[in-house]
Amino acid sequence: MATLIKDRQIVAQLSPPDLVLEPTDDPALVAGAVGIAGVIAINFPKFGDGRGYSIARLLRERYGYKGELRAVGEVARDHLHAMAQCGFDAFQLREGENPREALKAFDDFSEQYQSTAAQPLPLFRRRA
């Protein structure tokens, strides 16, 4: 059973996505659909494929997508913190990930320097 996380909680199931984007997909093409889609999933075919992070930020920050944004595929606990920063709020982890350990990963770092989907103000605009 794959671990499922929504809003930093373990959940028993997640609803089927309305759209699944692959790393090569251009989020501009679905810009018109972001208002109606309830769930968009982005697939991570490999542990080290980072394209989905950019797609997520574009959906959130440029196209104003407000619905559920789910990471699926080779998603491990080690990715969760950065993925959440980029705007993902739901995760279908790969097989074999420990659910309780995974939840802790959101707290791997207590701050980040950059402007992100989760925190548009970079640290330097919040720092005394």
Partner: peptide
């Protein structure tokens, strides 16, 4: 340096 450190979008270039 700060901008590049743990940049969440560019961790897996």
């Amino acid at each position: 340096r700060q901008w590049s450190t743990f940049h969440p979008e560019f961790n897996y270039l």
